[in-house]
């Protein structure tokens, strides 16, 4: 592999926006955002529902006119060179856009005709993509009979059919089960390796955003942070360590005196932040004057980053399944049945 290709300064910018904004009546869905994406990057837009992710994608894909600002995609202006932009991009929308009455292959053929994919390339490409997405055996089934994950895979195949330079994925794993989400990610990362493709995706799943080369954290129409995921997490000051000791106040004082760590007492533990906690802790345990009864280390997640930047959590709408089950079991009718 050529090393020069990997440095961002050399690669070409394929998406760039300046002050891009869109209002719907009085709602400012996107409030003037500026960023750029380099060729070959997997670039993620992370933010809660209603943050403005879909609105941004719609503007970049020429389906929605911006209220203000500029943007170029694949070097073409999104207002004045719409057809050229459309030819250069593949798009998988948040909501399905397949014709369910047609078969998988009929949907793909329609796409190939619409994009003018030459005949000799077409059938080979369809075969290759359906194989990659593990749908070749189902090529002649109506899309109606497909599961949610199969539909999404078919849409990704369709988005790639005309060899776009940039693939846009709007919440590609929304509503899919964990295994399927995992598989979709495998395909996405595979693809990036096989084709010199730039991927712009949105998600509100933290763990998925970790797979991106860079992410922009977006909240209420504004980008609040933009960097590589590790750097964003490191910006919080490292791992969160909690130690359990008999004498909390003594521990806090000693941590400050010996290591200049500002710790605080939380519950029955003493909490502090530092980078590289695994290397630090063995030494601490050997020489700390009061006995350490327990240790937990928690790596900061992107959710912590989001929380510290915006003051609220991104995971608002998903009750944990464990909780749901417990609530279910606690209903009076259920209890008597279980007894």
């Amino acid at each position: 592999m050529n090393h020069e290709q990997k440095t961002p300064s050399v690669s070409e910018t394929v998406i760039s926006t300046a002050g891009l904004a869109r209002n719907f009546g009085h709602t400012q869905a996107v409030k003037g955002i500026s960023f750029s994406v380099a060729e070959g990057e997997v670039f993620g837009f992370l933010g809660p529902n209603g943050a403005g992710k879909t609105t941004t994608i719609s503007m970049l894909c020429t389906l929605l006119a911006p209220s203000a600002g500029e943007a170029t995609v694949a070097g073409f202006d999104i207002r004045s060179k719409r057809t050229e932009v459309r030819r250069s991009i593949g798009l998988v929308f948040q909501d399905p856009t397949l014709d369910e009455y047609l078969t998988a292959i009929q949907n793909l053929r329609f796409h190939a005709y619409a994009y003018g994919v030459p005949k000799r390339v077409r059938d080979e490409r369809i075969h290759e993509l359906l194989n990659l997405m593990e749908l070749w055996d189902r090529r002649n089934s109506s899309v109606r009979e497909f599961s949610g994950g199969m539909k999404r895979r078919l849409e990704i195949a369709r988005g790639l059919l005309h060899h776009p330079r940039i693939l846009f994925l709007d919440e590609p794993t929304l509503g899919l089960d964990p295994q399927t989400r995992h598989r979709i990610w495998k395909y996405v990362l595979d693809l990036r390796r096989r084709e010199s493709l730039t991927i712009f995706l949105t998600t509100h799943y933290m763990d998925e955003a970790e797979n991106c080369d860079r992410i922009a954290i977006i909240d209420e129409g504004e980008i609040v942070a933009l960097d590589r995921p590790e750097l964003l997490k490191n910006s919080l000051g490292g791992d969160v360590v909690t130690i359990r000791v008999e004498n909390g106040e003594g521990a806090v004082a000693e941590l400050f005196a010996r290591y200049e760590l500002s710790a605080s007492i939380e519950g029955d533990g003493v909490c502090f932040k530092l980078p590289g906690a695994e290397e630090f802790l063995p030494g601490l345990m050997r020489s700390f004057s009061c006995e350490i009864l327990g240790v937990t280390i928690r790596r900061p997640t992107l959710d912590d980053v989001f929380l510290s930047l915006t003051g609220h959590s991104i995971r608002d709408d998903r009750p944990a399944t464990g909780q749901q089950l417990r609530r279910y079991l606690n209903t009076p009718g259920m209890k008597s049945q279980l007894n």
């Binding site: 397949l98 796409h111 994009y115």
Partner: peptide, 14 residues
């Protein structure tokens, strides 16, 4: 309604 119109509108067809 089924969303297919978007597939058409984002294509280079005029």
């Amino acid at each position: 309604e089924i969303g297919f119109l978007k597939e058409v509108l984002v294509s280079p067809l005029n």
